[in-house]
Simulated scan of single mutants.
Amino acid sequence: MIYKILSLVLTAGILVGCNHNGSPAPSDYLKSEGADIFMLDGYVYSNVQRLEWVKETEYSLGEQIGEITKQTTNSFGFDDGDANILPVGTKIYETDSPITIAVVDGKEIAYMKQVEG
């Protein structure tokens, strides 16, 4: 009986598909073709550089807040420091705006933290 309950709880947890913070999980994005995400501090960040308002936003680069440590397209085990497109070693910086910046070969790429609600 305990195994059935444990199995049910684990299955429900997998089906919910959210991080511990209630925000979208990597699996919510990785099933979409063209997804470009990374994870930092339990949050998924998604590439937003094509959005017009992002192109028009002025910002100042702040402190480094992370670095990509693994590249993977597998949502199982996708964790802090993982990215599906950004190369290992990419530095992640905060800004004085809602935008977070990844720097690849001197090029700044805009991302935003994805949160529910």
Rank of each mutant, 00 (worst) to 15 (best):
residue 3 Y to R: 12
residue 3 Y to S: 15
residue 4 K to L: 15
residue 5 I to D: 12
residue 6 L to V: 14
residue 6 L to S: 12
residue 6 L to A: 14
residue 8 L to S: 14
residue 9 V to T: 11
residue 10 L to T: 12
residue 10 L to G: 03
residue 10 L to I: 14
residue 12 A to V: 14
residue 12 A to F: 14
residue 13 G to H: 07
residue 13 G to M: 10
residue 13 G to L: 13
residue 15 L to K: 06
residue 15 L to V: 15
residue 15 L to N: 07
residue 17 G to Q: 08
residue 17 G to A: 10
residue 18 C to Q: 11
residue 18 C to S: 08
residue 19 N to D: 13
residue 19 N to C: 10
residue 20 H to W: 12
residue 21 N to V: 10
residue 21 N to R: 09
residue 22 G to L: 13
residue 22 G to P: 08
residue 22 G to R: 09
residue 23 S to L: 02
residue 24 P to N: 03
residue 28 D to P: 00
residue 28 D to Q: 11
residue 29 Y to C: 05
residue 29 Y to I: 05
residue 29 Y to N: 07
residue 29 Y to S: 08
residue 30 L to Y: 08
residue 30 L to D: 06
residue 31 K to R: 12
residue 33 E to W: 04
residue 35 A to P: 10
residue 35 A to I: 08
residue 36 D to T: 06
residue 36 D to H: 09
residue 37 I to E: 05
residue 38 F to P: 07
residue 39 M to F: 06
residue 40 L to K: 08
residue 41 D to R: 05
residue 41 D to V: 01
residue 42 G to L: 10
residue 42 G to N: 01
residue 46 S to L: 10
residue 46 S to D: 14
residue 47 N to K: 06
residue 49 Q to S: 13
residue 49 Q to D: 10
residue 50 R to S: 12
residue 50 R to C: 08
residue 51 L to C: 07
residue 53 W to H: 14
residue 53 W to F: 13
residue 55 K to A: 12
residue 56 E to R: 13
residue 57 T to S: 12
residue 57 T to R: 03
residue 59 Y to T: 01
residue 62 G to K: 08
residue 62 G to R: 03
residue 63 E to I: 02
residue 64 Q to E: 15
residue 66 G to T: 02
residue 66 G to S: 01
residue 67 E to F: 01
residue 69 T to E: 13
residue 69 T to M: 09
residue 69 T to V: 12
residue 71 Q to M: 11
residue 72 T to H: 00
residue 73 T to S: 15
residue 73 T to E: 15
residue 73 T to Q: 14
residue 73 T to A: 12
residue 74 N to V: 07
residue 75 S to F: 13
residue 76 F to M: 14
residue 76 F to R: 09
residue 79 D to M: 11
residue 79 D to L: 04
residue 79 D to T: 14
residue 80 D to L: 04
residue 80 D to Y: 01
residue 81 G to N: 07
residue 81 G to Q: 04
residue 82 D to N: 15
residue 82 D to E: 07
residue 84 N to E: 06
residue 84 N to I: 04
residue 85 I to G: 00
residue 85 I to N: 04
residue 86 L to D: 05
residue 86 L to I: 04
residue 87 P to A: 06
residue 87 P to F: 03
residue 88 V to M: 07
residue 89 G to Y: 01
residue 89 G to R: 03
residue 91 K to P: 04
residue 93 Y to G: 00
residue 93 Y to T: 00
residue 99 I to F: 00
residue 100 T to A: 02
residue 100 T to H: 01
residue 100 T to I: 12
residue 101 I to K: 00
residue 102 A to R: 01
residue 104 V to R: 02
residue 104 V to M: 02
residue 105 D to V: 03
residue 105 D to A: 11
residue 105 D to S: 11
residue 106 G to L: 03
residue 106 G to D: 13
residue 107 K to L: 08
residue 108 E to K: 10
residue 108 E to P: 00
residue 108 E to R: 04
residue 108 E to H: 11
residue 109 I to N: 02
residue 110 A to N: 04
residue 113 K to T: 07
residue 114 Q to L: 06
residue 115 V to K: 11
residue 117 G to H: 15
residue 117 G to E: 13
residue 117 G to A: 11
